[in-house]
Amino acid sequence: MDTFEELEDAVTQNMSKICQIRPIGLLLKKPIPSTSGVSDSDCIEWLDSKALSSVVYVCFGSIVQLKQQQKTYKDSGVLPEGFLGKAGDQGKLVEWSPQEQVLAHPSVACFVTHCGWNSTMEALSSGVPVVAFPQFGDQVTNAKLLVDVFKVGVCMCRSGEVENRIVSRSELEQCLREVTSSSKAV
């Protein structure tokens, strides 16, 4: 299993009664280079140019598809006119990034995540606080673990709510401030 006993002792104990399992620790993988033309160094070089704890890393994995109303881009996948110009050097949009390296980078202040298992493990191993935005399946449980058990972040909305509502900019801002600069910051 891609976990370790200290992280999930009760689960590994109970699962061991059903079948033999071996928690082998966190499996940090060597990133696979993107075929999209976006190189690792582009992303890391950009992070190198940013101040300590000044970047919010947002990634929803390769399966999660946010509702169109939640996205900031159009059905065609094209960003709104002028978006990149307005963002300038304050943001970087990439199709793929070396997530483990990004999360370990000193400029990253927090991670807005869908709470997939790999992202959950990588967030915990990097020590970066999270804003959890689970969509379905184990993501809801993983978010609960990150927020309520390991206390390394906040959840943007309660489980079950994500399907029927749009999270506003002000809610996201409140969560970001909570994990990075409030008295609750981790």
Rank of each mutant, 00 (worst) to 15 (best):
A51E: 08
L27N: 04
S76N: 04
Q101G: 04
H105G: 05
S39M: 00
C59K: 04
G82R: 02
W46V: 10
L145T: 12
R169W: 07
G116R: 09
V162G: 05
F150N: 00
T113K: 01
Q69A: 06
K151Y: 12
G116T: 05
S170H: 00
S16T: 01
V154L: 02
V152P: 01
D75G: 12
K71D: 04
K92V: 04
A51V: 02
G25D: 00
P106S: 06
S183L: 08
Q99M: 08
K151D: 04
N142W: 15
C157H: 05
L28K: 15
L84K: 10
L176P: 14
G91A: 15
C19F: 09
L172G: 00
Q65R: 15
E5W: 03
P80W: 09
P23S: 10
K30W: 07
W96K: 02
W96S: 04
C59F: 09
A143R: 14
M15N: 13
S97Q: 02
S53K: 14
D148N: 12
S41P: 13
C155S: 10
V112T: 07
Q90P: 01
W117N: 08
V152S: 06
G85S: 11
D89E: 07
Q99V: 05
K29R: 03
V55Q: 01
C175L: 15
K17H: 13
V78C: 12
V186Q: 10
S16Q: 08
L7G: 15
G25R: 10
C110V: 15
V64P: 04
V167H: 08
P98W: 06
R165M: 11
F4E: 02
E8G: 06
R165G: 02
S54I: 04
S34A: 12
L84N: 11
K92R: 06
L93T: 05
D89N: 03
V102I: 12
G116V: 13
E178I: 11
Q139A: 10
L7M: 08
A132E: 01
S183M: 03
E81G: 09
Q99D: 00
V149R: 12
I166V: 11
F111T: 02
L172E: 05
P31T: 02
E8A: 04
Q20H: 12
